[in-house]
Write a protein that binds this DNA or RNA. Structure first.
Lengths: 193, 193
DNA sequence: GAAAAAATGAACATAATGTTCACTTCATCA
DNA sequence: TGATGAAGTGAACATTATGTTCATTTTTTC
């Protein structure tokens, strides 16, 4: 197992444990135990506990991002691609129990304002994916000539709000309906007549 | 609210918090917070953290015991009473989520050997209830003239084993079937022909 | 089998948390 | 109403738990 794979293994174990107990209540030894190693050894891979937490969460967020990117890359029709992007992104957390729990314990992970965003780089990349789909729609003459940057930011904010409503505040069913409604409206708003 | 009621309130809050985090990971301040008081104040009611834990668990066990006792006291037929005793006792934990969680985190609560039983007094009272039903069956000429003390101990051990299997090891469905089977056999074994 | 890399576990520093207690607030009753 | 005891507070303190380091050992690589 090379260093890359070891790091992945460590981050995933750490995320599981942080999900179980929350940041404060997990000891770095709990994570070492989960990995079958000693805590001293963990410090060859991360700077300190906080660093381990941030790397583990980052890893989780990147998995999320990669899964969405993969699932839309081969879609020809840009409208379908836009819908898939939104839906896959929105529903992902229903499957990733660890990341979901960590998020519930620590909602500050989410960028309320992009100023105080601990994971700014990852969010920027996610927004880039959204932006690229919007740009493509315009380039292909399917979407109206909107201001891509501002619309990206707006849609991303709405998307984050939905995720918080659904997974952090658990306003499940009715929120999902709202999401589909909103998605329909946005798509119609985007399309050229 | 008198002292008695306050103690009850404290024990129930403590049990909820211990259930959430386990003994080691709960701070006495967590419990104080749950009660809306300061931790200093808690020490007017308990000796230390371990004492609080034991009192909270004891309170939970006594609730269990009282519920079973109440539910069988008005049953005329001793066979029905015996069946109800076993069934109510066995199924109780499916409803008391806090006590169940605490038990899962700390199976030593249960008397593996009565030598090292932290809650010996409570278990003794539970056994007394069982013993009294057996004695009544014999007195009324419905049960065979078995050795009540030894049988009580045996049945109680089996009962505890079923509870551990069902709630601690979560071997749910098939264990419940086994329980009903076992109960049937035991009752038949008790009855005079 | 030498050199490098990875892992260990004990030692250490420090932060977290259990516990105490002088003091404040609240309730009771003359 | 104001004296008295009970209940509660919060800061201080002692101790434990836990994060972090590092000399040493074990494993891997070549």
């Amino acid at each position: 197992m090379n260093r890359e794979e070891k790091l992945t293994r460590i981050y995933e174990a750490a995320l599981r444990v942080f999900a179980r107990y929350g940041f404060r209540r997990t000891r770095v030894e709990d994570i070492a135990d989960e990995l079958g190693m000693t805590k001293g050894n963990l410090y060859l891979y991360v700077k300190d506990k906080r660093d381990l937490y941030e790397k583990a969460v980052s890893h989780g967020l990147l998995q999320w991002q990669a899964m969405v990117a993969r699932s839309i890359e081969k879609i020809d029709d840009v409208c379908e691609q836009f819908l898939a992007l939104c839906r896959k992104g929105y529903t992902y957390l229903s499957r990733d129990v660890s990341l979901r729990s960590v998020l519930i314990n620590d909602p500050s992970i989410f960028p309320l304002s992009s100023r105080e965003d601990q994971f700014a780089e990852i969010n920027r990349a996610s927004m880039d994916l959204l932006r690229s789909v919007l740009a493509r729609g315009i380039r292909e003459g399917r979407f109206r000539e909107v201001d891509v940057d501002h619309l990206t930011e707006l849609l991303y904010s709405i998307y984050v709000m939905f995720i918080i409503k659904t997974y952090v505040k658990s306003e499940g069913k009715s929120t999902q309906k709202m999401f589909e409604q909103g998605l329909d409206v946005v798509l119609q708003g985007l399309l050229k007549k």
